[in-house]
Write a protein that binds this DNA or RNA. Structure first.
Lengths: 199, 199
DNA sequence: GTTTTTGTATGATTTGAATCATATCTTACT
DNA sequence: AGTAAGATATGATTCAAATCATACAAAAAC
């Protein structure tokens, strides 16, 4: 992804190494850098009314909080959920670069992709059965109905807005019903949809 | 909002008048125009697996399917849910205009705003109690805890991912518990949060 | 290597939202 | 004005997910 960035920008990036659980930025502060996560994992979170932490997004690779490029302040918190390596681009330089060589087009396409992803997520969370959400996720996030889970099933449960108990149960039920296959690999679990429906 | 668009573009717009229930575009087709809804209401929808229609978004004013500007095909359907007036901008002209006078910055900010809205929506739909979703909606979509409902409560229920029965009941319960006020006006219902929490 | 923590898994119970049913009120249509 | 259609409202019932509890395996920490 970074290969689409102009060299001028790449030269200005600073590499940031963070351990698990270290904070990256907090809600309300003014963005100075735009971060690109190279490896590891970052979570975007927010506090609920009772102080519970709500995870908005788990990211393994890519730009974080794209909207911060033109925002006066962050609208969520970010912390490393795993040891991570990031590239930090000065916001000012990044914004200047947008006007050069049609770089803005790259950025707009990236934002558009994020919008599509979020719309899918919204549609998914509006489904009220666990199996519907699982299947929808495989259909929209997976490639040809196959999805490699990033991280644990428990973390995936949070993303799907389900309790982990329900997710375990429903996954096994769907497997018994031959609606999907669960392939456990060393690194990660892989899910494959046993397709009936077209599309 | 259109006042931020350059004149060159405004001159190229075509006005489109559509009656309620008329389709605007369908998923899979190639976008030729970028639509701005002036008045009325448009719904972005998608089909579920069993053919049920799922409403992704109800819009009363603003650009529709912003991602279509750089998309090969629409990723959802759109139809007028009320008699509507729209402005249609040729995609090609719009994209060319992005490079002029830093217009891309306006567009990026608009996309960023949409991303924030969608993130809020995702966070809201991940809440599993009806009252939590209602309160979260007032906090994030409302101004200072006050929200004027666009359309019927029934339509709002769909947006919140709740059955309309549950929404009616929960609204009245929250009112009894003095957590919010319901003000019925001629045109629309207005909801006001009886604040306890800071922020 | 041992301990501790975290993820996986499943059973029992509770809870709250969906659903079905029905009634009234409002709005749109003719 | 009169009728039809849709929104509002509430009760009864069902159902599925959350929660609580517990057990075991795997991974991390020491």
């Amino acid at each position: 992804m970074l290969d689409q960035l102009p060299n001028t920008l790449l030269q200005q990036r600073k590499t940031v190494q963070l351990e698990a659980n270290q904070p990256l930025f907090i809600q309300g502060t003014k963005p100075k850098f735009l971060y690109f996560l190279e490896e590891g994992e970052v979570q975007l979170t927010r506090c609920g009314q009772q102080g519970e932490t709500c995870t908005l997004q788990r990211i393994q690779q890519g730009f974080l909080a794209e909207a911060s490029l033109f925002a006066e302040h962050y609208h969520c918190d970010a912390h490393c959920s795993k040891k991570s390596r990031l590239s930090a681009f000065p916001i000012k330089a990044f914004r200047q670069q947008l006007g050069q060589d049609g770089f803005y087009e790259v950025w707009i396409q990236l934002l558009s992709k994020e919008i599509k992803r979020l719309r899918n997520q919204g549609q998914r969370l509006a489904l009220n059965s666990a199996s519907d959400r699982i299947i929808h996720c495989l259909q929209t996030e997976g490639e040809n109905g196959v999805l490699r889970l990033q991280g644990s099933i428990k973390e995936w449960a949070a993303e799907l807005g389900l309790s982990h108990e329900t997710l375990y149960r429903t996954l096994h039920r769907l497997q018994k019903q031959k609606q999907l296959e669960i392939v456990k690999q060393k690194t990660a679990t892989q899910l494959k949809l046993t397709m009936h429906c077209p599309t």
